[in-house]
Simulated scan of single mutants.
Amino acid sequence: MAKLILTHEVTGLGEPGDIVEVKDGYARNYLLPRGLAEAWTKGAEKNVSSIRRARKAREVATLEDARALRDALAARVVTVTAKAGPGGRLFGAVSTTEIAEAVVAAGAPAIDKRKVEIGQPIKSLGEYTVSVRLHPEVSAKVTVKVVAGA
């Protein structure tokens, strides 16, 4: 078992700043190469408080704010422009960064790209529903319309 400090949120595992024990292969092959965690040391454990402070600054402050943001996001259809082939198939896939930028372009408040969860990769034109975790108790469903463009 490997003892790690999470630097980013990992669904089903924990929040940034959490100290977790995972199997060696999961740590070596997934968490560490993607920069989602760092190895636990006594020196690194002292940095946990700064990681938690940074997380608090990025989080939506209150439950009421999260619910208001959820309602604002649900009322909008977000449009993402992507390169597509003749059959409507995309060259690549729509990323969480593109969705977060499209939310801002649609006039909604900014959201953290790490909070966007795409169930299946978006690889063709059409309308999709993605989930955005706004607060531990509140998540929003956002309708994303993928259209062909340059």
Rank of each mutant, 00 (worst) to 15 (best):
T7P: 00
H8K: 15
E9S: 15
L13Q: 05
G14A: 11
E15D: 13
E15P: 04
P16D: 10
G17E: 09
I19P: 00
G25K: 05
G25H: 11
G25S: 13
Y26M: 04
R28I: 08
N29L: 14
N29P: 02
L31V: 08
L36W: 01
L36R: 02
L36M: 10
K42L: 14
K42W: 09
G43F: 00
K46M: 09
K46C: 12
K46F: 05
N47M: 06
N47D: 15
V48K: 01
V48F: 08
V48S: 00
S50V: 12
R53C: 02
A54F: 11
R55I: 08
R55K: 13
K56D: 11
A57L: 12
A57M: 14
V60F: 07
A61H: 12
E64S: 12
E64W: 03
E64C: 07
R67T: 01
L69I: 11
L73G: 02
A74H: 06
V77Q: 10
T79R: 09
T81H: 13
G85T: 09
G85F: 08
G87Q: 14
R89H: 07
A93E: 07
V94T: 08
A106C: 09
G107Y: 09
G107L: 05
A108Q: 11
P109D: 09
A110I: 09
A110W: 01
I111E: 03
K113M: 04
R114A: 07
I118M: 02
I118G: 04
I118P: 06
S124Q: 09
L125N: 06
L125D: 04
L125A: 08
L125Y: 00
Y128G: 03
T129R: 12
V130L: 12
V132G: 06
R133C: 09
L134Q: 03
E137D: 14
V138P: 07
V138A: 13
A140E: 05
A140H: 04
K141G: 12
K141Y: 07
V142T: 09
T143E: 08
V144R: 03
K145L: 07
G149C: 07
G149W: 08
